[in-house]
Design a protein around this nucleic acid. Structure first.
Length: 125
DNA sequence: ACGCTGACTATTA
DNA sequence: CTAATAGCCAGCG
C-alpha cells in the first residue's frame, strides 16, 4: 500500500445501507451478479454512469468485506478475466476456489472462456 | 480545497 | 498474447 498504510475509509454508512454513495451502488450491483457469472470493474462503473471510475469499483470491493450482506467480490474481475484482486482475499486462493466452485474454470489467475461467463450489469435492467 | 492513491482500461510497441 | 504508458474518477488526509 503506501507509506500512509491502508486507506482507513471509515465504515460505510454507520447507520445503515441507505447511503446513496458510489460505493453502495457498487455493492448492490455486485450482489445481483448471478451465481456462476462474473463481470468487470469497468462494466460496473459504466452501469453506474461513471465509466471512468473502474478503479473506484475495485476500491469499493475492498470495503465489501466489511459490508453486509456480503458482496460476492470474487465474481468481479478485470476486463481480461484475470483475478487481479485475489491478493485482497484471505487467503488469495479463496477467490479462485469460490469461482471454481461455481463452475468457472480458473487457470493461473485467468478465467477460461471469460466471455462465456461474463455478465453484463446493463442486461439485468 | 488541493493532491495522492488505486482490486482499472484503452492504446501503443 | 504480454509489457509499458497515459488517462480516468471518487474519496481521504
Amino acid at each position: 500500500m503506501s507509506p500512509k498504510e491502508k486507506h482507513p475509509l471509515k465504515q460505510i454508512t454507520p447507520s445503515g445501507e441507505n447511503d446513496a454513495s458510489f460505493f453502495e451502488s457498487v455493492f448492490e450491483l455486485v450482489r445481483q451478479i448471478p451465481k456462476g457469472r462474473v463481470t468487470s470493474y469497468g462494466a460496473i462503473a459504466a452501469a453506474l454512469g461513471t465509466k471512468g471510475a473502474a478503479r473506484m469499483v475495485g476500491w469499493a470491493m475492498n470495503q465489501s468485506h466489511f459490508v453486509k450482506p456480503a458482496v460476492p467480490a470474487h465474481r468481479v474481475v478485470n476486463r481480461q478475466g484475470r483475478l487481479t484482486g485475489k491478493i485482497h482475499f484471505a487467503p488469495p486462493e479463496r477467490m479462485e476456489q469460490l469461482l471454481k466452485k461455481e463452475g468457472i474454470q480458473v487457470i493461473d489467475d485467468q478465467i477460461q472462456d471469460f466471455e462465456k461467463y461474463f455478465w453484463d450489469p446493463n442486461e439485468m435492467i
